[in-house]
Design a binder for these strands. Structure first.
Lengths: 340, 340
DNA sequence: TTGAAAGCGCTAACAC
DNA sequence: GTGTTAGCGCTTTCAA
C-alpha cells in the first residue's frame, strides 16, 4: 500500500527547474530569485512536501536521534524518566528511539546493536539486573557516541552517569526512623547484585553506626516486592525481639510490610514505623499514608538528556566524566510520624 | 567528538576488493568464494562493523521504524501500552520512535511531522484531550502510511482502531455490584468531555436498566481522582438514602472512596461495596483489596502493533478498517465480595 | 541566478 | 567469482 513520498525532484520537475535550485529555494538561500522561491514554496506546501530525514541523515551523518535502553517501561520510576528524556529531547529537536530490555541481557545486546545501526547520536542506558558483560556498550564510546548511564550503571565503563543518591537516601530514611524514636530498625533490601540495593543498605548501615546502634544481620532480609515484603515482615515480627521500624527498598515492599503488620494486629506507627522508597503513586493512598523517599525520575531523565545533548554538540572529547547524584528527599507521612 | 563509523568501503579497501563483494560476502551470497567470505566476515568482526541502517533505509525506502504518539508516558495504562508496542515491534524487527504529546494539540502536530520526516512506516496514535482538528493525521493515510488509533481516536478519520470496550466494562462493573446484592449503586464518573467517561457511564446505566433499578441522578458525581473521590463519597454518604455500592471511573477515585467510607466508620463491603477501574498496581495492595476492571493495556499495545505491522507488510490498501474492542475483565477482590 | 556533478553507505543489475 | 555502475533524496562545491 506504499505510495511514494514527494521529493525535491518532483517539485523540480513540475517547475521545470533543477533539484538544487529547489533545495536552495526551500531554505531561502539569498541567491535564489524571489519568484522561484515563492513558486517552490507554494508547490511544496501544496504537495505537502516533507524533507526526507533519512536522506539528510545519510548526507550529514547526523540523525538527530538519541537512543534509550531501559529495563522496563511499565514502572512508575522508569516511565517518569522516559518522560523527562522525551521532553528535553523534543525541545532540542531530537527524536527518541526507545528500547526495552525487559531485564534480559541478551535483549540489551540486541538493543545496543539496533541503536548503533540506526546511528543514534547518543545513548542513555540503564542496565538490566542480569548484565555483567558490557562489551556491547563499549562500542559506543569507541565510536565517539556519547553514552550516559542513568539509575543503573556498569562500573567498568567510563562515561557519564546520572544516579540517584541511594546511599544518602538509605541514610536519610534510616536516620528519620531513628529520630522518630525507633531503636531496632530492620531493612528489607533488594538483590545485592544490584548496586542501588547495595547502596541503600550501605546508607542504612551508616545511619545506624552514626547513631551508635549495633547492626543486627537478622534485621536485614532480601525482599523487594509486595509478596516478599509480607513474608519477610512476618518473619521479622516473629523474632524474639522484633524491630520497631522498617525501611523497605521500595514502596510495594513497604506496603507488603504494612499488610503483615496489620495482620498481626499491630499498629503503625505506634508499634512499628515504616518507610518506603518511592515507586509509584502509592505513598499517599495507603492506610496509613507511607513515608517514602522521592526519587525525581523526571528530573533524572531531563538532566541526563541535557548532558547527553551537550556531549553530542561538543566537538571535543569530554575531559572528565560527570558523576551526578540526583538528590532525593524524604516525604514524611503517617507511617512514621513521631511516635513518642 | 565524532569518530566516523566503519563502512563497507573500509573493509573493501583493507582487503583490496570491491565494496559490492564485501556486501555480498556479508550476506553470504553463494557466488562469493569461501575464502573471500571468511576474510570479510573476520575483518568485519574485528572492526566491529555495523551496517548503516540509515543508508539501507534510503536505498530500500524502508526504515523498519514505527512511530507512536501518546498523550503522556507516566501513566500506568499508557506505559503498559508502550510496553506491548515495544515487545511486538522488537520481535518483528521494528524500531519504535516515541513522541509524547503531553496532551497538547500543538505538540501532537509537531510530533506527526517529525515522524513523517523520519519516514516511519506506520504510526500508532492516541490523541490528546484537546485535539479537534486532525489534518496532521490525515497526511499519513494520504501517503499510504498506515495509522492505527489506540484508546482514544479521532472520529472523523478513517482507519483502524483498537479501543477498550468501556461500555461493556461499565456494564460489567455495575452488574457485578447488583449481583453482589447492592440496591443503590452510585457512580463516580469522569469528565463527560472524554468519550471513555461517557461510555463507562453508559454501561452503568445499561446495567441498572436491565436490572430494573431506577437511575438516580444524585448517585452520579463527577470525580476522577483520589481527592475528588473522597469528597464525592462523603457527599454520597450524607444523602438521606446513601448508596450501598460505588462504581468509580478509576482506581484512585475508588481508593478515595475507600478512605471516605472508612473515615465514616463504615465497613467495606458489608455496608458499601466498591469497584474501581484499573489504573495501576493499586488494586491488590489496598485494604480491602479492590475489585477492579482490568484494562489490558499491554494487550492493546501488542494488538495494535501486530495489526500495524500487518498493514505495513501488506501490499494492498485494506478493504475494511478494523474496529477492535479489547475485552476487559472484572477482577473480583475483597471490596465487593458477596455480601449476603 | 541557476545547473551539473559528486557523494553520504549500501545494493543489485549488468558486465566480464 | 568479482568489479562497475547507478541510484535511493539531499546538499554543496564548482561552473556557467
Amino acid at each position: 500500500m506504499k505510495k511514494s513520498q514527494v521529493t525535491i525532484k518532483d517539485i523540480a520537475k513540475e517547475l521545470g527547474i533543477s533539484a538544487s535550485t529547489v533545495s536552495r529555494a526551500l531554505k531561502n538561500h539569498p541567491d535564489i530569485s524571489q519568484k522561484t522561491r515563492d513558486a517552490v514554496h507554494e508547490l511544496a506546501d501544496k504537495l505537502n512536501y516533507q524533507p526526507n530525514a533519512v536522506a539528510l541523515s545519510l548526507k550529514n551523518s547526523r540523525t538527530h536521534t538519541i537512543g534509550v535502553i531501559i529495563p522496563e517501561i511499565v514502572h512508575y520510576f522508569f516511565s517518569s524518566v522516559i518522560s523527562g528524556i522525551e521532553d528535553v529531547a523534543y525541545d532540542a529537536g531530537f527524536s527518541v528511539m526507545i528500547c526495552q530490555s525487559n531485564e534480559k541481557y541478551e535483549r540489551e545486546v540486541t538493543n545496543a546493536q539496533t541503536l548503533l545501526s540506526n546511528r543514534v547520536e547518543g545513548i542513555l542506558v540503564s542496565v538490566t539486573k542480569e548484565s555483567d558483560n558490557f562489551d556491547h556498550l563499549k562500542q559506543f564510546s569507541r565510536r565517539g557516541i556519547p553514552l550516559i548511564f542513568f539509575d543503573r550503571d556498569a562500573k567498568e565503563i567510563e562515561g557519564d552517569r546520572i544516579l540517584i543518591d541511594d546511599i544518602g537516601a538509605g541514610y536519610k530514611a534510616t536516620k528519620h526512623l531513628i529520630q522518630s524514636g525507633c531503636k531496632r530498625i530492620a531493612h528489607l533490601c533488594g538483590p545485592q547484585s544490584l548496586e542501588i540495593a547495595q547502596k541503600r543498605l550501605q546508607g542504612y548501615k551508616q545511619a545506624l553506626e552514626e547513631a551508635g546502634i549495633t547492626f543486627i544481620p537478622e534485621y536485614v532480609i532480601d525482599a523487594d516486592n509486595f509478596e516478599l515484603g509480607k513474608v519477610a515482615t512476618r518473619q521479622l515480627l516473629s523474632l524474639d525481639t522484633p524491630p520497631d521500624g522498617i525501611f523497605a527498598v521500595n514502596d510495594l515492599t513497604a506496603i507488603g510490610a504494612i499488610k503483615a503488620v496489620h495482620n498481626k494486629g499491630l499498629h503503625i506507627p505506634k508499634d512499628i514505623a515504616i518507610v518506603g522508597f518511592s515507586s509509584g503513586r502509592f505513598s499517599d493512598i495507603t492506610e496509613p499514608t507511607l513515608t517514602s523517599v522521592d526519587q525525581h525520575g523526571y528530573e533524572m531523565g531531563a538532566k541526563a538528556t541535557q548532558l547527553l545533548i551537550e556531549r553530542i554538540e561538543s566537538e571535543e572529547d569530554p575531559e572528565t566524566f560527570v558523576n551526578h547524584f540526583i538528590e532525593t528527599n524524604l516525604i514524611i507521612r503517617e507511617s512514621s510520624i513521631h511516635r513518642d
